[in-house]
Write a protein that binds this DNA or RNA. Structure first.
Length: 269
DNA sequence: CATTGTCCCTGGAAGC
DNA sequence: TGCTTCCAGGGACAAT
């Protein structure tokens, strides 16, 4: 399930293979993914355009096209972007064909992914808070964003308007590293706890990028390789396993219908 | 505005 | 063995 480190990995590995290439055709296998555009309208606005730039914002990938359109892709749970797949893979929704004969396929088993064409930054920027790895995201900025929030810190970390890019897995890992209970009200955290959580978020995201993301569920890199960040997970999806620090079984709790995994001994309320 | 619940979607696992 | 139900979760959206 692609979160910030997975999307960043995809961006980095895709970039050298697609920048400057011209899209000669797009095959639409599932028109629902380009809704509200029709398949032909989508094809009309994409075909013949060159990919000038690729960037990540939160969990979004943004392909800058030469006609000043932006192709925005959100992979949600099960989306993947694969370069030159050897065959037509199951759940293929779109295939981009380039002028050098190469191809980029978008597959999405659960079909929750989003593809959007826009000429503005607004649809993405309106939904997102700051990038946690940018220097301008300071601990003071983080503290301000948690101030007076009564919701559980786990729910607040998943709010993309508070911080962009953190998903369920890395929220659990950051809270474990910072030794904070996922239900702790966000606005009640002490300055020390906020500092620990701030450090943990940055360390965990950076480390996961170094490991090319976590291959939980269907995540694959553009060449089909897997990431290895999940081998370092302490709590995410580790229900019942002994905590690496104290041996207490990892517990699962539902917060906002999201599975939250934590060590009840290391992360006291 | 902050918060919370529901829905979307599919396929693997679990339960019967 | 084969059926049904549950579960995974990002985020849009509606309700409060």
């Amino acid at each position: 399930m692609p979160e910030l480190p997975e999307v960043e990995t995809i961006k980095r590995e895709l970039e050298p293979h697609i920048i400057g290439k011209k899209i000669t055709a797009v095959t639409v296998y599932d028109a629902r993914i380009v809704y509200p555009l029709s398949a032909s309208a989508f094809q009309g606005r994409i075909t013949g355009q060159r990919i000038e730039n690729l960037r990540r914002r939160g969990k979004y990938l943004i392909f800058q096209l030469s006609n000043s359109n932006r192709l925005v892709v959100h992979l949600r749970m099960s989306g993947a972007l694969l370069l030159n797949p050897p065959e037509l893979l199951p759940h293929t929704r779109l295939v981009f064909h380039f002028d050098d004969g190469s191809e980029l396929a978008l597959t999405d088993r659960r079909r929750l992914g989003i593809v959007l064409l826009t000429d503005s930054e607004k649809p993405v920027e309106d939904r997102l808070g700051p990038e946690p790895l940018e220097p301008r995201f300071t601990v003071e900025e983080f503290a301000n964003r948690l101030h007076r929030r009564r919701a559980p810190i786990k729910a607040v970390l998943l709010d993309q308007k508070v911080i962009a890019g953190i998903g369920n897995m890395y929220a659990d890992e950051a809270l474990f590293q910072a030794r904070i209970h996922p239900l702790h009200p966000a606005g009640d955290l002490s300055p020390e706890e906020i500092q620990r959580l701030y450090n943990a978020i940055r360390e965990i995201l950076c480390s996961a990028i170094d490991y090319k993301g976590a291959s939980v569920d269907t995540y694959q890199r553009p060449g089909g390789e897997l990431g290895t960040a999940h081998f370092n997970f302490n709590v995410a999806h580790c229900r019942g396993e002994p905590c690496h620090i104290c041996g207490t079984p990892i517990q699962r709790l539902a917060i906002r219908n999201r599975g939250s995994y934590f060590c009840p001994n290391c992360q006291k309320y």
